[in-house]
Amino acid sequence: MTAPKILLLPGWQNSDPAHWQSRWETNYGDHRVDQHDWIRPLRGDWSARLEEEVLAAPGPVVLVAHSLGCILVAAWAAHSRRTAKVRAALLVAPGDVERDDLRQMIPGWAPIVRQPLPFPALMIAAQDDPYCEATRSREMARDWGARFVEAGARGHLNSESGLGDWPEGRALLNDLLKEE
């Protein structure tokens, strides 16, 4: 079987060089899905870019999403006819775009699509994420049919969280891929 292509789906404003997604891109050769506009993200545009990348992949893909990228996965999966190419999804620190403050900063992403994902998924979220309350992360994981892993008090699981290469996250991804 062909090794899956890992598609990195950063959140709003992209992932900076110190972010674990950027480190995974450098260390493992994972592929970042570049969006046309990182500052004013449009759900339809972001979904179309993901669709292009999934179609372009010669074999199966694995989605590794952070923050708004998690919300993208749910929205894309609800409309795409290419979901069978996805072996699994790692969803990290979803942003709650239904919150008033985030809805104003990132318009057009609410409501969050809440239907089960048609592929195996694992969500990792911290109990003190400033962009999504722990109960909301758990609700999203449940609605999407994703297994949930609580990351403790680590914030938004981004550069500011001091994760470095985040070997724990990579180990969870590898375990997820072994499960199916």
Results as ranks from 00 to 15, higher is better:
2 T>F: 04
167 P>A: 07
176 L>D: 00
67 S>W: 11
122 L>M: 04
76 W>F: 09
110 A>E: 01
173 L>G: 11
177 L>A: 10
81 R>N: 14
40 R>P: 04
60 P>D: 07
180 E>H: 11
129 D>S: 07
174 N>M: 09
85 K>W: 00
29 G>E: 03
141 A>C: 05
47 S>Q: 13
64 V>C: 14
119 F>M: 02
145 G>T: 01
76 W>C: 05
11 G>K: 06
136 R>K: 12
135 T>C: 02
28 Y>P: 07
102 L>Q: 08
61 V>D: 10
153 A>P: 12
180 E>Y: 03
118 P>L: 00
52 E>A: 15
6 I>H: 14
80 S>G: 08
54 V>P: 08
67 S>R: 15
2 T>I: 13
87 R>S: 05
115 Q>R: 15
74 A>H: 02
76 W>N: 06
104 Q>L: 09
71 I>Y: 04
80 S>H: 05
95 G>H: 07
46 W>G: 12
39 I>Q: 15
78 A>W: 09
107 P>E: 01
7 L>G: 15
105 M>Q: 13
163 L>R: 08
139 E>G: 00
87 R>G: 06
6 I>N: 08
168 E>W: 12
133 E>F: 09
45 D>V: 14
86 V>E: 01
129 D>W: 05
20 W>C: 12
45 D>W: 05
44 G>S: 10
62 V>W: 01
171 A>T: 15
103 R>Q: 14
142 R>T: 02
180 E>V: 05
98 E>Q: 07
89 A>I: 03
101 D>C: 11
10 P>H: 15
180 E>Q: 06
51 E>T: 15
136 R>W: 05
126 A>C: 04
47 S>K: 09
169 G>F: 10
25 E>N: 04
63 L>N: 14
157 L>F: 12
108 G>L: 08
75 A>D: 11
83 T>I: 06
54 V>K: 06
68 L>G: 14
176 L>K: 03
73 V>N: 04
81 R>D: 14
27 N>F: 06
73 V>K: 06
154 R>G: 13
148 F>S: 03
56 A>Y: 07
52 E>N: 15
159 S>Q: 10
143 D>C: 08
136 R>E: 01
52 E>H: 12
173 L>V: 08
15 S>Y: 15
19 H>A: 09
167 P>E: 01
30 D>L: 13
17 P>G: 03
3 A>V: 07
138 R>A: 00
123 M>F: 06
164 G>D: 01
77 A>Q: 00
54 V>W: 03
29 G>S: 06
109 W>V: 00
119 F>W: 03
73 V>I: 07
118 P>D: 04
2 T>N: 10
87 R>C: 02
22 S>M: 04
140 M>T: 03
75 A>T: 05
178 K>P: 05
46 W>P: 14
123 M>H: 00
26 T>D: 10
157 L>M: 15
149 V>E: 11
101 D>V: 11
31 H>A: 12
80 S>L: 09
73 V>F: 05
109 W>D: 02
112 I>T: 13
173 L>H: 06
140 M>R: 02
170 R>L: 12
62 V>K: 01
131 Y>T: 06
41 P>E: 05
123 M>K: 01
149 V>G: 03
163 L>K: 02
175 D>A: 14
153 A>T: 13
94 P>M: 08
173 L>A: 12
85 K>C: 13
25 E>G: 09
145 G>E: 02
100 D>A: 14
156 H>L: 10
43 R>S: 14
59 G>S: 13
13 Q>G: 11
155 G>F: 13
41 P>K: 09
148 F>T: 02
96 D>Y: 13
